[in-house]
Design a protein around this nucleic acid. Sequence first.
DNA 1: TTTCTACTCCCCAGAAACAGCGAGGGGGTA
DNA 2: TACCCCCTCGCTGTTTCTGGGGAGTAGAAA
Lengths: 239, 239
Amino acid sequence: MGTELDWGQIQQDLENTNTLDELSGVAFRLRAMLGIEHLTYHWVDGAGDQYGCTTYSDTWEERYRDKNYHRIDPVILGCFQRFHPVDWKSLDWSGKVAKAFLQDAQSHGISNQGYSIPIRGPNGQFALFTVNHSCDDETWQQFISTYGRELILIAHYINRKALEFEKERQPESPRGLSPREIDAITLLALGYSRAQVAHSLSISEHTLRVYIESARSKLGAQNTTHAIATALSRGLIVV
Amino acid sequence: MGTELDWGQIQQDLENTNTLDELSGVAFRLRAMLGIEHLTYHWVDGAGDQYGCTTYSDTWEERYRDKNYHRIDPVILGCFQRFHPVDWKSLDWSGKVAKAFLQDAQSHGISNQGYSIPIRGPNGQFALFTVNHSCDDETWQQFISTYGRELILIAHYINRKALEFEKERQPESPRGLSPREIDAITLLALGYSRAQVAHSLSISEHTLRVYIESARSKLGAQNTTHAIATALSRGLIVV
DNA sequence: TTTCTACTCCCCAGAAACAGCGAGGGGGTA
DNA sequence: TACCCCCTCGCTGTTTCTGGGGAGTAGAAA
């Protein structure tokens, strides 16, 4: 494994990256710089419309998507509730499905040591940056303590780049919700009924419905529950 | 301004920080290390229940809270929609309220140059790390390009510490949901009606209701919408 | 073996949410 | 000034959800 990263080069490299495909090249070059076996940036989208760049095999990538593994992968589930980087060893692999997943992963070339960094952006965006290698625990510990800070920064910069691409992909500007709309759906998300919300906000239930309706249409949601879920996952409201 | 940060010392300092009050000490020491006038970590909570650590005057801090400035502060509004760090100059200060806010801030000792880094954690947590100084544009540019990466890391580590404090404040042990229950509420969160969900899962609508009911009671939720919001914010389902 | 949990199905009546309509006042922006 | 968005209130009927109840299977855990 190398000893020091050339940040000028990394930033230059990212600067010259203009498409998602080119990001894969960055992944491979970073892998070489770090001297590890695998490196992945994975934008996690609940709908399964996920992408990123990886040095894993295409086979595994496809399999992961086909099997909807992002719903059971302990790495994703664990990181989703954490802020700090996570060593795979500290995750919960006790479940039956988790064990089967682990076995399947290893049979597709995923190494035993892993370290994943959760990254979050606006509107509830969530991504994972992962380094993966096969070695003993001590060597791995050494690697993490040497490169821990650098890995956080790499995760940050790659995500920044990915968000740029995303912005180009969907220039739709999701209009924000008005304060009253936010109040309304926040209280609904807290379990209040319409009547209770209307009372809390000191407005009539009819008025309340107008807010819910407009929030729903702004969010492109099918129904109230969908609107709440959308607002939550976009980070428009906090419960 | 200094030239190189001693990360060992910074991490040690954070390690020894066990309360929110002690975090203020860290802020002052970091300010000295960076050789700037002000430094702020600010946890932004939609409900206004915000806290953090700052080297700003208590007067300004109180005023900020009293006036609910977090609702109009262009720094917060701007950073909330961005991922990358933001120089205050690139924000939109054109509004009337924004100008008044800026003037008020400067009359309370806030310097002209500012650089804010948005940070996000699980469950929609959002915080800002800001450095503030008075100097000309060129000097400031120099400072940012020298310390940009370090500032990102400082923001990361302080936020990690703040989240630890927060977790101590509200410990909870959520029982997991069964696979069928997860399927059910996930589809509901995606906007499906009961009938559609039942059809998708190839079960009767009656059965579906049992799942929703049991999920609701496990989550301690008042109604279906509440259950979905709870599951989402606990990271039990992903949409 | 017993016990527990997960999964499946069924009934009913009342409460709540839904969809779509219209209308007026206030405030800021162009 | 005109325009747009936000906030507020109103009506009606239809669809859906809610909250009780009970009951049987299979598999895993104790």
